[in-house]
Simulated assay, not measured.
Amino acid sequence: MTRLQAVFWDVDGTLADTELNGHRQAFNQAFADCGLSWNWNEQLYSELLSIPGGRQRMQSYAQRVGDTLDAELLERLRRSKQQHYLKVVSSGAITLRPGVSRLLHELNRADVQQWIVTSSGEASVLALIESFSGELTGIFEGMVTADDVYRHKPHPDPYQLALDLSGSDRASVVVFEDSTPGLQSARAAGLCCVLTPSPWDRELENSQQHASAVIDQLGEDEQKARIFSGPPCAEGLITLEYLELLLSATSR
């Protein structure tokens, strides 16, 4: 069985449910702060999530509605959104997804490297880690954020940088993702990807077959994981043993 060296975690929608009640609210408050009449409801925001990265999302939406975002306004929006998001996170409104804390600590005890690889900015990630200080502090070896690469997901650059920084063999790494851009990024970097699909990603159904496994969540004793594709998981818990089984199956 292949030994697992590292796990690369996406954040938004994978580690934690941050999008609709976290980032979306912060965007809307930033729009109001900067005098824009934009308001992203849940349906609209779900559509915009196909665009990875907040800056790119705002630029794309501006083009869509015929507004102009110059560099100064875009930077004001970015700073305001970040401040509001930090407040949302510190309020305790964000929750980790089922099974995440359990698996993080199992991998940590087994000395498996764990890295964050995300299209969010570093400040947002650090705020999330701090808000879960009892569960996330000291878990991650490092992170690759939107601030570290020029080309974001779906390009392979974020995961390639994580491979370089961690010194891991790509055949011994598992990625956790929830979206089409994330899955495409991981696969383009030649990595085994476990997908926990986000309900708002409408394109994902057409690309799920490229994931090594597709599950609804990682599983708790009282809330078992459902495996939609990939090796069976008899106890309903995604574990170190399951991830190593997945790597071995993928390498055949």
Rank of each mutant, 00 (worst) to 15 (best):
C192V: 15
A62H: 01
S168V: 11
E177M: 11
A162Q: 07
S248H: 10
E241H: 14
A62L: 02
H84K: 06
L243H: 02
G66A: 04
Q208R: 15
G13F: 04
A162I: 01
A26D: 02
F176V: 07
G167V: 09
F8N: 07
L96S: 01
D10L: 01
S80W: 08
S46R: 15
T145P: 08
R226C: 00
H23I: 05
G121L: 06
L48G: 02
D67G: 04
R78A: 12
L104P: 01
A211H: 01
D169Q: 15
W115V: 04
E47D: 15
T68I: 13
Y242T: 07
E42W: 00
F176L: 15
T118K: 09
R76S: 10
K224S: 09
A171C: 14
S119N: 13
L163D: 02
K81V: 08
G92V: 10
C34K: 11
E72D: 12
C34E: 14
V112W: 04
V89Q: 04
L15P: 04
E235R: 11
A213C: 10
L44K: 11
L183D: 01
E205Y: 11
S212C: 09
Y150S: 13
G230Y: 05
V125C: 07
S124Y: 03
S133I: 10
Y45S: 06
L204W: 06
T2H: 10
A26W: 00
D201N: 11
H155S: 14
D221L: 13
R55P: 03
V112R: 07
G182H: 07
A213G: 03
V7Q: 06
N28L: 00
P232C: 04
L4E: 00
G121W: 06
A234G: 00
N28E: 13
S207I: 10
T180L: 10
S120K: 11
H105D: 06
M143S: 15
C192S: 14
Q83K: 15
G22E: 07
E205K: 15
L243R: 01
A188I: 08
P98F: 06
L74I: 05
D201T: 11
L237W: 03
E47Y: 08
C34D: 11
E220L: 14
R109F: 00
V173R: 05
Q29A: 13
V7I: 04
L195R: 03
R78S: 14
L15E: 03
L240Y: 02
L163V: 08
A162D: 00
A211D: 05
M1T: 13
A146E: 15
S133D: 12
A249M: 03
K224H: 13
V100K: 03
L73V: 06
H152R: 15
T180M: 07
N39P: 00
R252A: 07
S37V: 10
S166H: 08
T137R: 14
G182K: 04
G219F: 05
V117S: 08
Q208F: 00
Q217A: 09
I94K: 02
G142S: 09
Q184W: 06
D221W: 07
F8M: 05
V173Q: 04
S131E: 03
Y159R: 05
Q59H: 01
T137V: 14
L240M: 03
G53T: 11
E177V: 14
P98L: 10
T196E: 03
Q114D: 03
L20W: 08
L15K: 01
G236E: 04
L218H: 01
E241V: 14
L240I: 09
G22S: 13
K153S: 03
D164A: 11
A234I: 12
